[in-house]
Design a binder for these strands. Structure first.
Lengths: 238, 238
DNA sequence: ACCTGAACACCGTTCAAGT
DNA sequence: ACCTGAACACCGTTCAAGT
């Protein structure tokens, strides 16, 4: 009685690369890295595992696309009107925040080759490089400077992902209490052998008031200071 | 006739954690990351897959132990009699060379949590930290400095592993011609859209005379310069 | 105490067959 | 052109049963 022709069912939208990647991101966010399975993905998309292969060559490409979907938006911002240092800081923080929100990104990101097009890393590299040029770094040193910044960002990304995973393993998966995790690490560090781990014990206390994000920018500033060291405009915070 | 009691067969040495880890390293070195399988490992040790579990809790622990076996020896050196900068450089290069010789280390290393004991990363952190203290970095900044250096090292490790893998994928697995790979990347970079990838195209030429190892130390020196910036003894190369 | 190896519960990927 | 889902060739891990 209601309607002559029933509307097309919601779940019968045609499959597409975008829908698949979106579902993959959702799966990764909710179930974690181990949860991304062609079978689970197929079920979520109300189809069979084989269907996905028509739109995507395999799991590697799917993962790369998922990472790209999460990282690319953070690179949309505009750099004009700020100092190069500020631009690099906000660029780096954008990547940091994206990884913080999607911890699974950090795990894989660091080991994607910096190949053209495919990898979002090349876009980050390019953006950093332009600011390095704006810093008037001599041409021969530009590659080194941009690479160092990118490597640092990737290193922190990996460590951060490892920490989130460890935090989730220690407590129940629902409770990602970062502070409690840091406390546990600090306590463990303080119990290390004083002869073998003098320094680690010394800095264990600093873990308590530790802010991952602030620490991350501090590292960026350290590298920026190194890049501009010995120059008239060498101050990092202008 | 030869001997009354036959000597125990070579392959019947009892299983032990060390033998298992050694076999795992060998497998990883020869067949790569995907080659480390409990079945393949069991075959190499002339036993069943289940036997391994009596000595090792699972694959994660096995991988961590394999990494430890490769990294730990590089930390054996003595730091006395050199400047802190030199000590940090040689420490970092030790890790770099170990990863270069065993590319599979780079993939996993970056995502091991810096937990006590388990991870070789904590030992590296400790060693770096001591030299940071020797650099007379103010106490409040020591953690940041040591963390930045470690993150950078881990980031390069991951990138390096990714590059070796990409190089092996492009050419036949036997031929890990790094130079040819860099050439291919340089060419690809030069073909990028000039509007979108201005910087990357600019530095593509530098890839040709690029030396991974030298580039790595240059980055370390950049961070060291940042750490000591603005101080009387601020020069990195004394 | 230590080893064996079949069995369990999964994977990614392929591919004939359908529409 | 696009989808289906059974089938293939694997995994890590467990565990009864052996010595």
């Amino acid at each position: 009685m209601a309607s002559r022709k029933s509307r097309p069912e919601r779940r019968q939208e045609p499959l597409s690369r975008e829908r698949i990647v979106a579902a993959a991101v959702e799966l990764l966010d909710t179930v974690g890295e181990g949860g991304l399975t062609f079978r689970a993905l197929a079920e979520r998309l109300a189809t069979g595992p084989g269907a996905i292969y028509w739109h995507v060559t395999g799991k590697n490409e799917l993962l790369a696309a998922a990472i790209d979907a999460v990282i690319a938006p953070t690179l949309a911002g505009d750099d004009t009107g700020t100092t190069p240092q500020e631009a690099i800081r906000s660029l780096a923080l954008g990547v940091f925040d994206a990884i913080d929100a999607h911890p699974w990104v950090g795990t894989t990101l660091a080991q994607l080759p910096r190949t053209p097009g495919k990898s979002p890393m090349l876009r980050v590299f390019e953006r950093i490089g332009r600011q390095v040029q704006a810093l008037r770094v001599p041409e021969a040193a530009q590659f080194t400077a941009a690479s160092a910044l990118l490597s640092y960002i990737l290193g922190v990304a990996g460590q951060n992902a490892a920490n989130t995973r460890a935090a989730q393993a220690n407590t129940d998966p629902a409770n990602t209490d970062r502070a409690a995790f840091l406390d546990a690490v600090a306590t463990a560090w303080r119990e290390l052998d004083p002869d073998q781990y003098r320094f680690t014990r010394d800095v264990a206390g600093q873990l308590r008031e530790h802010d991952d994000r602030a620490e991350f920018v501090a590292g960026i500033d350290l590298i920026l200071a190194g890049i501009t060291a010995g120059r008239a405009d060498g101050r990092t915070r202008p």
